[in-house]
Nucleic acid binder design. Structure first.
Lengths: 344, 344
DNA sequence: TCCATCGTTGACAGCGCTGTCAAATGAAGT
DNA sequence: ACTTCATTTGACAGCGCTGTCAACGATGGA
C-alpha cells in the first residue's frame, strides 16, 4: 500500500497538518520542520492522493479540455488542421505538468440537445479548476452559459463572438493575412487573387480584410473579379482556382484563406496546365501537415496552436493570482516555402 | 451549492447507503426504493462527486492515456499519421463517456531518465482504473514494469515486443501489406517495387513480409533490386522512388510502406517525368490526411485508430469481468484511390 | 513586569462518498 | 408456531486530505 500523509507525519515526528503545509508551500513554516518533512516524503516516496486533496480542498488539480465531437466540422473550421488537437494538447499538457495539474479531455457535442445537462454533470462531478475551450465550442452560447453559471474559469481559443465573456487567447488573422498579401506584393505580384472562406465566419472575414488592407496600403485596387468565395474545402478551392485562373489577365498569385483550398487551387492549376509557382504563386493559411508535402510545398501561415494552448493553460492556472489578464494575443509565423516566387 | 448524497437521501426518505446502492446498480434493491431514489436524484439534479467516490471506493472512474512527448518521433512511427492522437482519443472518449468514465491524457517522455519516478507519482496520485498505451510507450519496458508493479490494468496499441505483457489491440500489418500487394497484382502488375521502413521495426518487417508473401502466393519472384529501404520520411521515399524508377525494366507499381514515403515516390516520379498512375502506380500505408489530397490521391491502408482505441478502452473497462480477453485484432481497410491503376 | 502580537504548530472536524456489518423483514421449512 | 435463511435496508466508520481554530512560545512596546 502506498504511503499516506499519516505515515509521513509519523516518520517526521510532526502533525499531518504540518506535512500538508510543507507540501502546499504554505507560509510560516520553519526551515527545520520543512527539512524533516521533506526527508520523510523522500524516504517514503510519498505522493499525495489527488482525490483526497480535491475532496477536502478547494481545487481539483484538473484542467478539462472540451473538444468537439464532430471530426468533419473540425476539418474546415478556421485555423484547424487535422493535428490541431495534438498540437493543442502538447501545449496544454506541458503547462499542466509544470504546475502539477492534469489534463482531462471531454467530448462535447456542439449543438446536441442534451449538451447542457451533460456539461452540468461534468462540472459537478469533476469540479475542474479550469476549462479550455476549442472552436467551435469556444463560441457556443450554451457552453459559455453553463461555465459562467457554475463559476468555472475558462479560456476560449480563437473565439469569434461575445468577446467579453471569459478569458481568450487568439491570433490576429487580419494582420496575418495582410502580412501574407504584403509578402506576395513584395515578391512583385500586382494581380493577386483571393479565395475567401464563408463570409459568415468572423475569422474568414478577418482574413479577407487583411488582404484588402494590404492591397490598399500598397496602392493596389482590390478587384472584385479576383476574390472568390469558397467553403474551406479542397473541392471549393479547386473550383475557385479554375475560376481565377481563367480570368483575363490571369492573376500571378493566388492567396487561399486556408491550406485545403490552396491545395485545391494547386490542383486546378495543374489541370489547366499552369505551372506553380512558375505560372502562378499560391499560398495558404493554417500550415496543415499536407502543406509541407504538396507539390510545390505551400507558403502558409502557421497558427502556433501549442503555444496558444500553453498560454491559455497558464492563464487558467494563474487566474486567481492575476485576475486582470483575460486576453492574450499570440504571434503567427509566416512559413515561406516553394509555392510563392516572384512572378515569372 | 450542488446537491450531495445526503440531500438525495433526505428527500427520498432513505439512508445514504441506499442512494449509493441505486446509483451503483448494486443487487438486492427493491423496485420501490429504486423509484424513490431516482425521483429524488432527478428533482435535485444530483451528480455524485468523483473525488469522493474514488477516495472512498476502489475505482477512480479515470482512464489515463499515456501519449508520447516527442512529436518528431510520432511522425515516422509505424501506422501513425499526424492525426493519430485525435483519432485515438475520439475512440477512447466515446467509450469512456458511455461507461461514465473520464479520459486523462498524460505526457510520457519515452526514454527520459526521470520517467519511472514520474510514472509512479502519476499512478499513485491519480489511481487510474486503466491505462492506454500508444506507440512508442507501448513498447517501453520501463513503462510496462511500472504498470505491472502497481497492478494497473493496461492495453497496448500496436505493441511490437514482449507480446505477452498486458492486454493488446493490434492490426495485422503483414496481412494488410499482402492484401495491398495482391491488389496490385490483381490490377495486372508484375514488377512491383517496394519501399520498406527500417528493418529494426517489427511493423516494418511485417509489411515487408506481407509483400514477399503475396508475391510468392501469386508465383512471382521478389527481386532484391525492387526493394529499397527508407526511414518512413518523405525524403527517403523520394530517394527510394528515384532509385526504383531508374532501374531497368522499370517497375510498373511501387508500394511504399507508409504514406509519407509514397508521397516521396510520387514526387520522384513527377521530377523524372513519369506520370502517375499512368506510368507507375503508387500506393502507401496509413491513410494520413495528406493521402487524400495528393496528386493523384493515394491508394493506401487505413489503420482504424479510433476503433482500436475504442476496443482498448472496452477491454480496460471490462477487464474485471472478463479477464481472459487480453488480445484483440482489428481489421484494416484498403482504401482504393486514383494512384493505382492497371499498368498502362 | 505585563499584555498584545506575531510566527509557528497541532487537534480536529469535515469533504461526499463506499464498504462492512448488523438489524429488520419476509419467505420457507419443520 | 418456531426456527432458518435469504433479502432488503440502515448505521457507521473510514478513505486521505485541507480548513479552521486554538495553543504555544517568542518578541516587543508600555
Amino acid at each position: 500500500m502506498a504511503a499516506t500523509i499519516y505515515d509521513v507525519a509519523a516518520l517526521a515526528g510532526v502533525s499531518i497538518k504540518s506535512v500538508s503545509r510543507v507540501l502546499n508551500r504554505e507560509p510560516n513554516v520553519s526551515a527545520a520542520l520543512q527539512a524533516k518533512v521533506q526527508a520523510a516524503v523522500v524516504s517514503l516516496d510519498y505522493q499525495p492522493n489527488l482525490s483526497a486533496r480535491s475532496l477536502a480542498g478547494a481545487s481539483s488539480y484538473l484542467i478539462a479540455a472540451f473538444v468537439d465531437a464532430d471530426l468533419t466540422l473540425e476539418h474546415w473550421r478556421s485555423g484547424r488542421g487535422n493535428d490541431y488537437l495534438s498540437r493543442l494538447q502538447f501545449g496544454a499538457l506541458e503547462e499542466c505538468r509544470k504546475a502539477g495539474y492534469h489534463l482531462l479531455v471531454e467530448l462535447v457535442d456542439y449543438g446536441a440537445p442534451s449538451l447542457e445537462a451533460r456539461l452540468v454533470a461534468l462540472l459537478r462531478s469533476l469540479r475542474p479548476d479550469g476549462v479550455l475551450l476549442t472552436p467551435p465550442n469556444a463560441d457556443d452560447p450554451t457552453v459559455l452559459d453553463v461555465l459562467e453559471r457554475t463559476g468555472t474559469p475558462f479560456v476560449r481559443l480563437g473565439a469569434e463572438r461575445d468577446l467579453g465573456r471569459g478569458m481568450r487567447v487568439f491570433m490576429d488573422d487580419r494582420q496575418a493575412a495582410a502580412d501574407m498579401t504584403a509578402h506576395l506584393i513584395g515578391l512583385g505580384h500586382r494581380r493577386i487573387g483571393f479565395v475567401s472562406g464563408p463570409d459568415a465566419y468572423p475569422a474568414s472575414r478577418a482574413r479577407r480584410e487583411g488582404y484588402d488592407q494590404a492591397l490598399q496600403a500598397h496602392g493596389l485596387v482590390a478587384e472584385p473579379d479576383l476574390v472568390v468565395e469558397g467553403d474551406f474545402t479542397f473541392a471549393s478551392g479547386r473550383r475557385a482556382g479554375e475560376a481565377l485562373l481563367t480570368t483575363d489577365p490571369r492573376p500571378s498569385a493566388i492567396f487561399a484563406s486556408n491550406d485545403d483550398m490552396a491545395l485545391g487551387v494547386l490542383n486546378a492549376a495543374a489541370s489547366l496546365g499552369v505551372s506553380a509557382p512558375g505560372g502562378v504563386s499560391v499560398c495558404g493559411f493554417d500550415d496543415t501537415p499536407s502543406a509541407m508535402f504538396s507539390t510545390p510545398p505551400l507558403t502558409t501561415v502557421r497558427q502556433p496552436v501549442a503555444e496558444m494552448a500553453a498560454a491559455a493553460t497558464r492563464m487558467l492556472l494563474e487566474a486567481a493570482r492575476d485576475p486582470d489578464r483575460t486576453v492574450e494575443k499570440i504571434d503567427y509565423i509566416l512559413v515561406e516555402r516553394a509555392s510563392t516566387q516572384p512572378p515569372g
